[in-house]
Amino acid sequence: MTPGGRVTPLPTLPLKGRGEGTPAPTDPPLLEGRGRRRGSSTRIRLRITAPLFVFVAFLLLGNAARALGIDPPLPDPAQEARAVDLHKALRCLVCQNQSIHDSNAGLATDLRRIVRERITAGDSDKQVIDYVVTRYGDWVLLKPPLNVRTAVLWAAPVILILLGAGFVASFHRRNRNVALTLPTPLSDAERARLNAIMSSDEPPPAVRSKGAGS
């Protein structure tokens, strides 16, 4: 934002590729009306892309104007920095998961102005927060305060980590004895049979598991 409170217009985007002027050398000449296929499809593409560029440019410019053009900052940079920090800590009640710093909602704009007013009036950060909280409750704070009602919320990560650690520990204890038992080595007869199977070209006989079959 410029000091005068005016929005500097963004430079217009140069249109890349085919402009509206002379056609590229590879293009066939554009014919009038229902002429050649190729030419009309190029023109249709132009007819769609050019307004699209303008539309996108408008969107970008519109947002820039809205984000920059509304709030006059406080003259004192230190106070303005405090205001912005507070804006980032306060929830926009309309858009819910945005801070009032990020939101374009009317109410967010009003609340930003009020925060600046309170700071100019000499309020401390805590006084400003209290001012908003008395009207909108703890919910307006993006970082919930630690109190009886939010104790579960704050304790939840610790509880979950402890639960997970307990699970991992018990899993390890259970598996320690199993993992260290090596399988019994093959007997001589088994080894001979294995060698026979591995060296023959025949597919191995189907292995019937114990107790299976009739």
Binding site: V94, L107, D110, R135, Y136, G137
Partner: peptide, 13 residues
Amino acid sequence: RVGRVGIDFGVYG
């Protein structure tokens, strides 16, 4: 007009 009393009432919608 400016919504100040609304904010004092905790109005958000």
